[in-house]
Write a protein that binds this DNA or RNA. Structure first.
Lengths: 195, 195
DNA sequence: GCGCTGACAGATTTCAATATCTGTCAGCAC
DNA sequence: GTGCTGACAGATATTGAAATCTGTCAGCGC
């Protein structure tokens, strides 16, 4: 009758994150995860066909925690330029906070993401689609002058890589970073604006 | 009388590049370099105080080969917007060509650059200063409307990272890359333009 | 004297033996 | 039947001894 002992994929993922936090990415094994769940490691393989797929699922959960709050901003009403700026700043803040508050876990997730590149690609497509939505809205409002919102969205994503791509995380602590964000956002919003 | 046997820092650097190409970064040793030069390894230490400083010097040479042709473009006369676009495209082309033509050597130089981060910082400052010059010129010509050319130059550099930072090199082969470069350049030039 | 050599100490890397892990599956318990 | 276990084979990681490398310097040859 004890519901807690039911082994679900969700529970495995939660415990796997704990194990990764405790042991680190390099040392965490499927056996460790099984031990933390108090089951045999064979049981874990009943829910995930391989260690790689388990890690991929952890990466996916992590990326979803980034994209959900952004989707909410994208769905709100209001002027597109303000919304785009808010959306981008939220994206940067989410990333910067994660790396500042728990750098080790950030490094762990980063490596997981490198391995699960198809998951990352889907995440990127999701984010770009959200930006595309905001830009199309801006065009409809007469605020933006853009030939192709899809291409413009990809350009916005490319042009802000310095502030959201983990390869540049070591610069995010830099005190000039906020000024640099402001400068790029100003430039990009001017570039999109109807005149 | 044979000038070829004179041991100069320059000659050591040339031979070191050969050795790196032949053996790879991980396996190339100071002893290998000395053997290629037909001297004892102690002689190499007469010109470079450590293996790290030798590697740093190799990285510096490589970066200078990137920045010199750009400085030439920056020094030419002409309308700033055209020049800025040419300068940026030359920067991207230089990087993209290097990674396409000799990916192994690119990886080698990339690792060297990571180690010699002070050299890379100076290189970055150099490039940003060149952009600043072009932007200031554009302001003087009435083509650009920019509050602070220094900040704008840093913003242009940040906003084009996707196309010149080696962390994104794996995307440079992508067939959509040229479209993406066009989209970002259009956006940025519109953002700088006086209206 | 000047520049190079080569032996050396300590640090680092390699390699092979050993231990641990991944993924499977026959069989047990319910 | 359903879901879990634990022994197993092959793959991967760890370890410590041996080999190699880095950086120094006394001394040799010109």
């Amino acid at each position: 009758m004890n519901e807690a002992v039911v082994l679900t994929s969700e529970r495995i993922l939660e415990v796997t994150e704990d194990v990764l936090r405790r042991y680190g990415l390099a040392k965490a094994t499927v056996v460790d995860v099984a031990r933390a769940l108090d089951v045999s490691h064979g049981s874990v393989y009943r829910h995930f066909p391989s260690k790689a797929s388990l890690r991929e699922a952890v990466a996916k959960r992590w990326l979803e925690r980034v994209s959900k709050p952004l989707a909410q901003i994208a769905a709100e009403p209001g002027p597109a330029p303000v919304k785009l700026e808010r959306w981008l700043r939220e994206l940067f803040d989410a990333k910067h906070k994660r790396v500042c508050e728990d750098p080790e876990m950030f490094a762990t997730y980063l490596t997981l993401a490198r391995e699960a590149c198809s998951v990352v690609k889907a995440h990127k497509q999701d984010l770009i689609a959200q930006v595309e939505g905001i830009i199309a809205e801006g065009v409809a409002q007469g605020a933006f002058d853009v030939a192709d919102p899809k291409i413009a969205a990809a350009a916005i994503f490319d042009a802000t890589r310095s502030f959201h791509h983990p390869a540049h995380a070591d610069e995010w602590a830099d005190c000039t970073c906020s000024t640099r964000v402001d400068a790029v956002l100003t430039l990009l919003l001017r570039g999109l604006a109807a005149r």
